[in-house]
């Protein structure tokens, strides 16, 4: 790891200023992705701006059917705090990596990183979340922009994530046992005005909505409604853990399981 300075601001304004003052500076969330990246010398920031001391970015609140999560809130805290208000999200957060990873890794770091096999992007997209940054509010539908890419600008930080709570929801993760990430993950969320289905771990373009399944499930929220629907293998990722066809097949299977568990 190359050396760097570390700043520990205590407010969003100071964090944004620290990032703006140096174009080689980078935000540090829980470090569960960034520190391994730095060890491999895949990044060499001059300065890390630690967000863990920013109190305004910590914690969870629920109001009017919307769960609001501070951008620096660790997965373990989310799992505990939304257990009553949004159980499907609690189950997702409580199943990321392992307990020690969940005590450090944050929702803002996960959404900023947009790993194609990460869990939170599926929850944000299926819930129709709003990603709040220091400067604006971004709808999840407009936020993800391909593998490891989002519409966040240089120095822009995720300060809060607001997720509308569905009437029924479930996340099915097919765990890749070595990395503990999702080989494929499907989040199904049923709202009064329709069903949203978000798929992670599968597409070459990162997290996406499976619109045919959404239409079928909006008309009839049962696993049978998905009979005959499939995702094309074209455009899926392939690696030693699974081929394109295998991933495409898993999407169908996991979506059915998610609907059965949510219904």
């Amino acid at each position: 790891m190359y050396n760097f300075d570390v700043e520990k601001p205590t407010s969003i304004a100071d964090a944004v200023a620290a990032l703006a003052s140096d174009d080689e500076a980078q935000a540090l969330g829980g470090g569960q992705t960034l520190i391994p990246t730095l060890k491999q010398r895949l990044a060499s920031p001059s300065k890390l701006v630690s967000l863990s001391g920013v109190a305004e970015m910590q914690g969870v609140s629920t109001d009017g059917g919307v769960v609001s999560i501070g951008g620096a809130t660790p997965h373990g805290v989310v799992a505990a705090e939304v257990a009553q208000s949004y159980p499907a999200l609690a189950a997702l957060a409580g199943n990321i990596g392992d307990p020690a990873v969940r005590n450090r890794g944050t929702i803002g770091g996960s959404l900023a990183n947009n790993d194609p096999a990460a869990c939170y992007p599926a929850a944000a997209l299926a819930s129709g979340a709003t990603i709040v940054t220091n400067g604006r509010e971004i709808a999840a539908d407009d936020y993800f922009d391909g593998l490891f890419t989002t519409v966040l600008e240089e120095g822009e930080i995720v300060t809060q994530v607001r997720l509308p709570v569905p009437e029924a929801a479930n996340y099915q993760k097919f765990v890749q046992p070595a990395s503990r990430f999702a080989l494929v993950g499907v989040f199904v969320a049923k709202f009064a005005d329709g069903v949203r289905v978000a798929v992670t771990g599968a597409s070459e373009d990162g997290v996406f909505r499976w619109s045919e399944a959404e239409a079928a499930l909006s008309a009839n929220f049962s696993a049978d409604a998905l009979d005959g629907l499939s995702v094309a293998a074209d455009g899926m990722m392939a690696d030693i853990h699974g081929s394109k066809a295998y991933r495409a097949h898993l999407i169908g299977v996991l979506t059915k399981r998610a609907v059965a568990a949510a219904a």
Binding site: K8, P36, V101, N103
Partner: peptide
């Protein structure tokens, strides 16, 4: 997980946390 310690009461992997963050 060989490096797990507790920081402020919770388990963390000490190989994936900066010392200055534990000030």
């Amino acid at each position: 997980g060989a490096c797990v310690v507790h920081v402020n009461g919770v388990a963390v992997k000490s190989c994936t946390m900066l010392a200055v963050e534990a000030e």
